[in-house]
Design a protein around this nucleic acid. Sequence first.
DNA 1: ATACAGAATTAAGCATATTTTAAGTTTTTA
DNA 2: TAAAAACTTAAAATATGCTTAATTCTGTAT
Lengths: 224, 224
Amino acid sequence: MRILVIEDEPGIARFLKEGLEEESFAVDVAEDGIKGQEMAMDNGEEYDLLLVDWMLPGMSGVEIVRQIREEGLQMPVIFLTARDTVQDAVFALEMGANDYIRKPFSFEELLARIRVQLREPSGETSRLSTGKLVMDLNTHQVFRGEEEIQLTQKEFALLEFLLRNKGKACSRTRIIEHVWDIHFDYDTSVIDVYINSLRKKIDQKDEPGFIRTIRGVGYIIQEE
Amino acid sequence: MRILVIEDEPGIARFLKEGLEEESFAVDVAEDGIKGQEMAMDNGEEYDLLLVDWMLPGMSGVEIVRQIREEGLQMPVIFLTARDTVQDAVFALEMGANDYIRKPFSFEELLARIRVQLREPSGETSRLSTGKLVMDLNTHQVFRGEEEIQLTQKEFALLEFLLRNKGKACSRTRIIEHVWDIHFDYDTSVIDVYINSLRKKIDQKDEPGFIRTIRGVGYIIQEE
DNA sequence: ATACAGAATTAAGCATATTTTAAGTTTTTA
DNA sequence: TAAAAACTTAAAATATGCTTAATTCTGTAT
């Protein structure tokens, strides 16, 4: 899942980027409002979520949201506001933001709110699953039935992407963009390697594998 | 569906070609404006869509569009423009382009715009069918009734082409151009071979076949 | 700082599925 | 019935994905 952080203060920006990357999000940072707006728009539906500072040089957060929504972009936006600008934050919600969090905030809390926003509109719990295989996005755990499976960051991110797209063919290009954040030319077989190690971990001998290969295209986890 | 990419930067061109091919488009690339214009014109209405870089050696994108339209060609054209040439892009729209997308762009967004132009119902249930035979373009699956049928890429592409042209005779020339991307004289019996293996897979003994041969012309899947 | 461990990535060879070629057979029609 | 077109089959060539091992990177503990 890709997140764009629009934040001018380098310390906070770095903190967010690193923290979120540890949670296996793909994170880009824009240092001012104008860049932020451009990145959010240029990349179209690319970002799955925007984290926007309220006070920004160049263009205010509210203005960014306004323009983004005008463009028809639907991704959730969470505001970072200073303690005393709650009024404004409420205003921002009216303008099309989805949530706000007051600085200073705990990273945990931010994470929780991000997860709320990224949750499938219908899904109540922050879980993804297919058959016996269950991912808990909050605790970062994966289970096959009762048994817990240890995945690395990338394995987790890859499985998450496939599960979020359950029933849809995921092309290598889409996978490399969303999970690895690599655009334009790529010439690598990382995907194969990770699919391989994922399968080793999640599949059981006797049962059919969870991930199906679509030759010449990519991979898919089928609807049950 | 055939797409012509006119783009001089090899990296981007390859990225586009491979990504679009994964989505089962047939893609040609022209490395400069002059070649691009020739290919677009030579092949007449052949290409279903043009993807044209704005800045090209030889002949500018706008000029290409102008000439193409003058020739009476109607296929949709999408421009690839650099970030700061929006003004020009607007001008290009006036000249006859159908849409533009700013670089750097996400593949997702490009796909979405292509689908808009080709009027393909994006995402969700994009299906083609005739009688009991159903193709799900999302999952790349083919069913006859309940039973799933495994097709290879080429078989899939061929069936897709015939179904998209349901009720219309598909000449061998059109088939070889759209599905195999082979132009000029061809001297091969691949089509026969593939029609044969397709029929073996999709037809049932007792029922009449889905694909009818039109002697001297090609093949057709009839309207139900 | 340094060394270590685990993770991520690259690279290469292998196995196999797909695609194409080619040649013989059957069907159609003039 | 002869020629052209289409069908069928098998093999050769090619492309793709899988797997393993080596290498690089990253974070942590000493």
